[in-house]
């Protein structure tokens, strides 16, 4: 039977996540789907990751190690090594549930026009505490790729461990853009896949995404690489969408997308102000205005400006809806993109 089922490649890039590796690799090994290759690629870890991963070599996991830390480019190498009809990137601190691959494959096999499928997730912290999230959409569906495009300008719908990608579409979309840090790279990949294929969404929580303390998140913003990448990604997507005249829906959301980004920048600015890092806060406040001039009319901008100038007395603003609470529970469950058709997982024998 196994021979009749298409091969799925689960690619696990790792850097110093030894404490999470057992759960991650076991999750990949314990899938109900039975034709899977697992490739683990260590990015020159300084912890005992290789010791942990090597335990699974006897169970068929291809355990590999880079000669140096090549950051995101590990995913390029993994994609090069992978032989599956379907690909999945499972970051080493994340987890998948046993039926994840089976459910995704059943939909992809029934719908060859679908290039990638997302399932839902919850968040899990370093101690294993789970934060339940509302699913992004309010039903399971298949939609045309073009109608999903503008969503990726505005929201983080899913991360790699929630996704199975058809290899042929991955290649046609020119693969993973290793320029971006991985959160941004995910979004970029979903966008480029949507330009050339249909999209499926399973409203079932089949992945757990590891989140780190919000201060860690701010750390990623401190070197200013991340905001610049976010800004350029939106611009790049608007231009890519405009290359194909059908996709005016992307252009229409440009101003809103930059405004939303500006709000995120202000969220980081307020964090920086709370840490008395006024230079960084000022940079973010300026960048917020570059992204969207109208941002100065937002309450959060006034808060940041007054705090920066030392004229504010109230120090406990309501920061909900800003970049600060990005890993807290949010109200979601939106309608699917235009032109969708509902799917029922039971119809696919999974």
């Amino acid at each position: 039977m196994k021979e009749n089922r298409p091969l799925v490649s689960i690619m696990i890039p790792n850097r110093n996540h030894s404490m999470f590796l057992d759960g991650c690799i076991r999750g990949a090994l314990d899938q109900t789907y039975d034709n899977i290759e697992i490739i683990f690629l260590d990015n020159c870890s300084t912890d005992n990751s290789m010791d942990v991963a090597s335990k699974y070599a006897d169970r068929g996991v291809m355990v590999c190690k880079n000669p140096l830390n090549i950051t995101n480019r590990s995913i390029d190498l993994l994609a090069y090594m992978a032989k599956g009809k379907y690909l999945m990137t499972l970051f080493a601190d994340d987890l998948i549930k046993p039926t994840m691959v089976e459910k995704c494959v059943s939909i992809m096999e029934a719908h060859p026009e679908v290039g990638y499928v997302h399932c839902e997730r919850d968040f899990i912290d370093a101690d294993g505490t789970i934060t339940e999230l509302d699913p992004f959409y309010n039903c399971s569906f298949i939609s045309p790729g073009w109608s999903a495009l503008p969503i990726y300008l505005l929201a983080d719908v899913a991360q790699s461990p929630q996704c199975l990608i058809r290899r042929s579409v991955f290649d046609a979309a020119m693969g993973f853009e290793s320029e971006f840090d991985h959160v941004n790279a995910d979004k970029d990949l979903w966008f480029r896949l949507s330009l050339i294929s249909d999209y499926a969404y399973i409203r079932e929580k089949l992945s757990l995404i590891r989140v780190h303390a919000s201060r860690e998140t701010v750390k990623a913003f401190r070197n200013f690489y991340h905001p610049l990448a976010l800004f350029l990604t939106i611009d790049f997507h608007v231009r890519l969408g405009s290359e194909q005249e059908l996709h005016n829906n992307v252009l229409e959301r440009k101003a809103f997308a930059f405004h939303k980004l500006a709000l995120e920048f202000l969220g980081i600015a307020s964090f920086a102000l709370n840490e008395n890092n006024t230079d960084l806060a000022k940079q973010y406040m300026l960048f917020a205005q570059i992204a969207s001039e109208d941002i100065i009319h937002e309450e959060l901008y006034t808060y940041c400006l007054e705090t920066y100038n030392g004229t504010r007395t109230d120090t406990t603003p309501d920061l909900s809806g800003t970049g600060q609470d990005m890993y807290k529970k949010r109200k979601r469950s939106y309608d699917p993109p235009e032109g969708y058709c509902l799917i029922n997982l039971e119809d696919y024998g999974s």
């Binding site: 320029e179 070197n223 200013f224 690489y225 350029l232 611009d235």
Partner: peptide, 12 residues
Amino acid sequence: VSRFYLITRLKV
């Protein structure tokens, strides 16, 4: 912004 990004990227 792309120029600034390239400089920052190299530092990272």
